[in-house]
């Protein structure tokens, strides 16, 4: 049992956990996110889109790693697009990058504790928080194994553990299901549903069925712009037998993309 601080029970003054208006972000010289409008509240949001749609660049901008070159971006009511202090927003942020680097000599526990320290958690709570995060991703048996000895799926889960160690209010997971076996993917979906009850989770993925199963909302982007935002049920109802795909959600996804491309061509 842990004491609840006044900061945690304070009423929120921001309508959206993540709010972007006309957001523009460069990836190198290419304008990968080009005028994106997006509002995300509490829940699990699945970010879908074809390769090169700007998913990873958007994730990096929301993670405050990349600086937007235009538009507005607020996280939990804090502007993170200008010269403002990023620390309050960063303390409430969890981020799993697409290709996450790590220190191979660290054990899982050391790695997660080190990230907790970087996230400026109170020192006394770091050991406990690291253990809880490792338990939640099912790595307890490997907690004292060195990172270089872990398989791809275990590394991915260690990455998720470091992302959730500070109980973030905004959690960004870029391709969390890569390298996970089917059983682990089911566990991850369970974890996502659990986290989504009080957190804004943005999950970028290529797997439409993951989105349909675990997300409360689907966000489809293409060429740096928002194409569609709605529930997985609404996505499934968009497709019919004439569209490519093996499930209702997949058919809805291809129907949306085809419609969008047809509109763009006109």
């Amino acid at each position: 049992m842990r004491a609840v601080s006044t900061a945690e029970t304070a009423a929120t003054t921001h309508p959206w956990a993540v709010h972007a208006e006309g957001l523009k972000v460069r990836a190198g010289r290419h304008l990968a996110v080009d005028g994106l409008d997006l509002s995300l509240g509490t829940g699990v949001h699945g970010l879908l889109g074809p390769n090169g749609a700007g998913k990873t660049t958007l994730m990096r901008a929301v993670a405050t790693v990349l600086k937007p070159c235009g538009g507005r971006l607020t996280l939990l009511g804090c502007a993170v697009d200008g010269r403002a202090d990023l620390r309050p927003a960063r303390r409430a942020l969890g981020y799993l990058p697409q290709h996450f680097g790590f220190y191979p000599r660290f054990t899982v526990r050391e790695f997660v504790s080190y990230m907790a320290w970087l996230k400026e958690m109170p020192k006394a709570g770091i050991g406990e928080a690291a253990q809880r995060a490792i338990d939640r991703v099912g790595l307890a048996a490997k907690a004292d194994a060195r990172l270089r000895t872990l398989s791809g799926g275990m590394l991915r889960r260690a990455g998720i553990a470091q992302a959730i160690v500070n109980d973030p209010q905004v959690l960004l997971l870029d391709e969390p299901t890569v390298g996970l076996d089917p059983e682990q993917r089911l566990d991850l979906r369970e974890l996502l549903r659990d986290l989504g009850t009080d957190t804004c989770v943005l999950v970028s993925t290529h797997l439409v069925e993951d989105v349909a199963a675990a997300c409360t909302e689907v966000v489809l982007i293409n060429e740096g712009r928002l194409v569609w935002q709605g529930t997985p049920g609404a996505l499934a109802s968009l497709g019919d037998d004439g569209h490519a795909g093996d499930s209702a959600a997949e058919r809805g996804y291809s129907a949306l993309l085809r419609r969008h491309r047809a509109e763009a061509a006109r």
């Binding site: 996450f100 220190y103 400026e120």
Partner: peptide, 11 residues
Amino acid sequence: PAWELIAGTPS
């Protein structure tokens, strides 16, 4: 190696 993780932390 962990630059992308570190760049997003308050520290």
